[in-house]
């Protein structure tokens, strides 16, 4: 699994560099994101522009990260493609997460 991290206007932007966020990497992804939260990052953008496939394990890991925040902060998503957006819509997670076309729009929304 490969994640790249960048801080923009007080927001941690985490980009998943793998093409697939699936059962193979879901556990490592969840742990890495939890580590960020435990280090004090509470406003996060998850950029999925490099991801073209998310399965239920990947989606469950993203939900777990949101729950880890415990309502103190924000986790929003940027860069979904048609296939990954379809996953959020099928599971109705598009109502749970705020979705943005690109990182800048997501950072602006979260930076407050």
């Amino acid at each position: 699994m490969k994640l790249t991290n960048e801080e923009k206007r007080g927001v941690l932007v985490v980009r998943v560099e793998n093409e697939r966020l699936d059962a193979h990497i879901a556990s490592d992804f969840r742990q890495a994101m939890s580590d960020h939260i435990e280090r004090g990052h509470a406003r996060l953008v998850l950029d999925l522009v490099a991801v073209n496939f998310i399965d239920s394990s990947g989606l469950g890991a993203i939900v777990a990260v949101l729950k880890k925040l415990g309502g103190k902060g924000a986790l929003v998503i940027s860069g979904l493609h048609d296939s990954t957006l379809a996953m959020f819509k099928l599971t109705r997670m598009d109502r749970v997460f705020s979705l943005y076309d690109d990182i800048d729009a997501a950072v602006t929304a979260v930076s407050g």
Binding site: L59, L66, T91
Partner: peptide, 22 residues
């Protein structure tokens, strides 16, 4: 089926159970 989602209740969002529903 897919689990029900109450988008206003983050604490109780399901983290699993989507696979068979999908």
């Amino acid at each position: 089926p897919l689990p029900d989602i109450d988008h206003g209740d983050v604490t109780n969002l399901p983290e699993g159970g989507f696979g068979i529903g999908l």
